[in-house]
Structure formats: C-alpha cells, structure tokens
Design a protein around this nucleic acid. Structure first.
Lengths: 165, 165
DNA sequence: TTGCTCCTCACGTCACGTGAGGTGGC
DNA sequence: TTGCTCCTCACGTCACGTGAGGTGGC
C-alpha cells in the first residue's frame, strides 16, 4: 500500500496529487471530479492500491477546458463528444468540429434568451395590470371568483392572473 | 361502479370530465395533471369508485393560471405557495404577495439573461479566435499539446480553448 | 366482449449536493 | 494510534416523459 509514482529509490516519477489537492487547484470539488470521471471526461493518472485517485498537474489543462466549455453553456455530453474526437481527423477537421459546436451553442443561447425576454415581457405586463387593480373596487373574493375579463376594461387579464389578484 | 356526479334520476349534477378530456381542454397531458395533483396544485372535483379522476370545467381556471405563471418562469413550488395563500388576508395583502412574487421573478429572469449574455459573449470571442487559427501553422498535435498561450499573439486563448483547437 | 381510457408504480433525465458507513495514508 | 483524506454507494433535486402491467367505463 504505497503511493504510486514512486520507484524503489523513493523519488516521485511525476508530480502526483490526490483528488482534494487537485480539486483545489482546479477550483472545483471532489464530487464533480468523480462525476466527470464517470462521464469519461477526466481520469486520474493512476490509482493507489487502496483506491485513491492520483492526478498529474497536466491534467489540469483538460479539466480547465471542460470548465471553460461548460461556462459557455455546453452540456457535458457535448463536451465529451468534442473531446473524444480530439486528434481524430486533420487539423482542419478538428477545427471545423469545434466551430460547429460553438455555433450550435450560440443558437441555443439565443433561443433561451428569447424565451427569457418573453417571460420578462409577460411579467412586466402582469405587473402593470396589477398596478391598476389597486384602484379597482372589484376583484375576486376569497371564494374563488376570478377577474376575467377585467372589471375595469373588460379585457382578459394578461397571463390569466384573474384568479390570483 | 357508476360515474360520479349523477343522482338517482341519472342527470349529471355538473359537467364532469375525465382526465383525458380535461387535459385536452387545457392543452396539457395526463402526466402533468397527475404531477400537479401530487404537488397539490390541482385536484379533481371527485373520483369514481374505480379511481378515475373527474374534473369540473371550472377547474380549468385554476389550471390555466398555473400554466400562465409557469410561462412566466415561476417554479411550481412558488406557484403553489402563491395559490395556497389565496383568500388569506385582505385584498391588498393578496395583491402585495403577487406583486412581490412577480418582482422576484423579474430579478431572477434578469440574472439568467445576464448569464446567457456572458455565454454569448464568450462564444463569439472563442469563435473569432478560432477563425484566426485557420491561418496558423501551429496548433496542438494529436498527442495533446495545447495552445496556451496562442502561438500567434502570445495571449491566452479565450476560455482556454487551447487544448481543443 | 371489445377497445379505449384510465389507474398506479417506477425508472430516466442533468449536474451535481449531501449524507452514510467505512477504510487509506502519512 | 490519531486524524484527516479518501473510498463507494445511494438518495435528492425539477418537471415531467415514458413505459410496464393491470383494470374501469360505456
């Protein structure tokens, strides 16, 4: 049960760190590293006979790239697919794959942003309408009457807030 | 085993529909209705002796409001909390609670939008940088060298794309 | 009786968080 | 030997989707 990376002279063959130190270096945590390993994203360079994971400093590059791509919103499966095909094909082909993935991500982000904008819009509209209710003597009673249409202007409430107001 | 809502004369006391019809009326599906019931958001007016759910047309109002609030991005637990306190307190208090929830939601949406904007920004930057790589003779070899810093300008690649390009 | 509708589990999704219960390493 | 670190399950999250296997209702 000795730590790996040591030859008989006791000199470390490389800089190996346990998962805790590695996580600290990378600004992440143990669970995430184990999860990434499960997904095939990063593996420790070796394991001790007791099962402890040992990482090389160089593995940080790979981990940092995963983190970077994740910050851009890519999901882990996509990131894995991208990294799996590293080294496959020519330099041009590899670049094309990355470009493709990033462009697809831009489209995804745009779609999400559009949804959020619509939500914001609906929220402001509802907020404005509820502002008017302040001066309205009507309104649903506790028993559950709903305001639709609005007693003030006869139009449906935005997003059917009728029953809530 | 007769359907509920019928008295001895066989005349329906109210308009009762089974879950399938109700889902169709509401533009949703069975699973969602059952899930909402589990969360305490909507309950069928009654059940047949065989366990079938029967809904009133009027229950549509409540369901539509859940759907509307969900479109605004509120999570179901929040929606439930809002609807649970309906009828509690004065008209003003109820209005204040709704206003509060909607304002909190605006803040949430804004935060999400900011994150998306940052992602979009990072994506465009990475895309631009990768564009330059096309004319670069360097680049990581299959064995795993990474481009950091960039061989062209000596600066770190955006979002650590170095190992990918 | 035949179908169509409905029922209740219960697993899967995504990226981890959070224990529980138990050992490795210096 | 004491602690600190690490190990492997395994459940929980959120809003359902998707079967499986079985019955209700007209």
């Amino acid at each position: 049960m000795n730590r790996p990376g040591e030859d008989k002279s006791g000199a470390p063959a490389q800089e190996l760190v346990k998962i805790g130190a590695f996580a600290r270096l990378a600004g992440t945590n143990l669970r995430t590293l184990r999860y990434y390993e499960e997904l095939g994203l990063i593996r420790p360079a070796t394991r001790s006979s007791g099962g402890f994971r040992y990482y090389r400093q160089e593995d940080l590059d790979r981990l940092r790239m995963v983190a970077s791509l994740q910050e851009l919103g890519l999901e882990l499966a996509r990131i894995r697919a991208l990294m799996d095909t590293r080294g496959a094909g020519s330099k041009e082909e590899r670049r094309a794959r990355v470009l493709e993935a990033l462009r697809a991500q831009v489209a995804l982000v745009d779609a999400r942003a559009a949804r959020l904008a619509a939500q914001r819009d609906g929220l402001l509209r509802a907020l404005a309408k509820l502002g008017e209710c302040g001066s309205c003597a009507h309104g649903p009673v506790p028993e559950g009457d709903a305001c639709h249409p609005c007693s003030l202007d006869g139009k449906a409430l935005p997003t059917d807030l009728g029953a809530l107001a």
